[in-house]
């Protein structure tokens, strides 16, 4: 039982760190701010949450598990809000989409 818990925790750690790596590679490779935001807000959040869950699984006592889960929920609530705020601010200030973008249905709204 204890060994399985340890192995599960190790697996969560590895998967979480791989997602963090994927998010930062996405930050490097994707063409513009808005597509980079996809990588940071999904894979990055996922990576941090998985590593917190790994800590919860490894420790196994109630206080730590509840605090870790509170951290995960908190992170899941705040990550989309902050990326949404940043995207809204950047778009309304005038950072344009990359030239590979195929449509922009928000443009007439801003020009109004």
């Amino acid at each position: 039982m204890n060994e399985i818990v340890t192995l599960v925790s190790a697996a969560f750690l590895l998967i979480g760190s791989l997602f963090a790596l994927v998010a930062s590679v996405g930050l490097l490779r994707l063409p513009d701010l808005y597509t980079r935001m996809h990588a940071a807000s999904k894979a990055g959040t996922m990576g941090a949450c998985l590593m917190l869950i790994a800590l919860a699984v490894h420790s196994g006592d109630v206080g730590t598990v509840s605090r870790a889960l509170a951290g995960v929920v908190f992170f899941l609530l705040t990550a989309p809000v902050s990326s949404h705020l940043l995207a809204k601010a950047a778009y309304s200030v005038g950072y344009r989409l990359h030239k590979s973008s195929v449509r922009d249905e928000m443009a007439p709204e801003v020009e109004k």
Binding site: R36, A40, G44, T45, G47, A48, L52, A54, L55, F75
Partner: peptide, 15 residues
């Protein structure tokens, strides 16, 4: 956005 990502990675480090 990079700084936001750094915070996520730092949380991973702390865990």
């Amino acid at each position: 956005l990079g700084l936001d990502m750094l915070v996520a990675i730092a949380i991973g480090f702390i865990a």
